[in-house]
Simulated scan of single mutants.
Amino acid sequence: MAALFAGCGADEPAPKKGLKPLVIKEQTSSVTQGTGGFVVTWAGVISNPNRWHFGENVAATVVGKDAAGKEVVRTEQPLDAVPPSGALRFSGQAMASAKPAQVKLTFTPAKWRRAARIPSAFVPFPVSAANTEKLGNGSYLVTGAVANPYQKAATSLVVTALLRDKDGRLLGGASTYVDDVRAGTPRRFVLTVDGLNAAGPVARTEVAARTWGSSARPYEELALSGAAVPTTGKPKTPPFVNDRGNQAMPEDHRP
């Protein structure tokens, strides 16, 4: 299965003088047989080279075609805002009516919003106790806990896990939501990365959390609330008896 990728506004000029377009650092996709058709899964990393601006309202269009060139799947995935001098790790999944021989991702150019705080105010959301377990049939279970470094509670965070081989090559990924994350109370997450039966052995898992939504507003509101007092407390929510993953699907409507 071939995969073609186009960058964010690769043929577009910089939207404003002095601002650079978002950069597609890496991407991958896979196709597996599902119960109701073929499952197309993709993952990647987009970086923002601009120090003082958020990249907002970016959307990915995913198109899969069979060997004869017939389109068998098309979906649009709204992406979350990319912070200044930061990166967005994303993933998505869609069903195809027939097996795609080629999958192509294209991206709309970002709209730019000047950050309300200095770049150092947008600190990452700490992830702890991350664990990856091989389930078989190309699936991996990823669990862990995400914390909130700000005084204000995070209404909803997106946790994305990217799986890599021993050389660091991106193999696949998946995402899930964690709601109402308060300072000092890490919340557990669980997700399943599928579609890696044709990939090489997984050697490393990279997990990152971000605010949910195409706008920078949720992240800015957290940063404006100020940093919380650091804590080393363990998650207060009990572990799952039987961990079962779930994923954030690309058809979700983002504000």
Rank of each mutant, 00 (worst) to 15 (best):
A3G: 08
L4T: 14
L4N: 13
G7V: 09
C8A: 10
C8K: 00
A10F: 08
D11Q: 15
P21Y: 00
K25G: 06
T28F: 08
T35A: 10
T41R: 13
T41W: 05
W42H: 08
W42K: 03
W52K: 11
W52N: 14
G55R: 07
V63E: 11
G69T: 11
V72A: 09
Q77G: 05
A81T: 10
V82I: 08
P83E: 04
P84Q: 13
R89D: 06
R89F: 06
Q93V: 12
S97W: 07
Q102W: 11
Q102Y: 10
V103I: 14
F107I: 05
T108K: 06
P109E: 07
A110F: 01
P119V: 14
V123W: 00
P124T: 12
F125I: 02
F125N: 02
P126N: 03
Y140S: 13
L141I: 12
Q151F: 02
A153L: 05
T155A: 14
T155H: 10
V158S: 10
V159S: 00
V159L: 00
L162D: 03
L162R: 03
L163S: 05
D167P: 07
L170C: 04
G172D: 06
G173D: 08
T185I: 12
R187A: 06
D194C: 08
L196D: 01
L196G: 01
L196Q: 01
A198I: 04
A199K: 15
A199V: 11
V207C: 05
T211C: 13
R217D: 11
P218F: 01
L222A: 07
V229P: 06
G233W: 03
G233K: 09
T237L: 04
F240E: 13
D243Y: 14
D243G: 13
R244M: 09
Q247S: 15
E251P: 01
D252T: 14
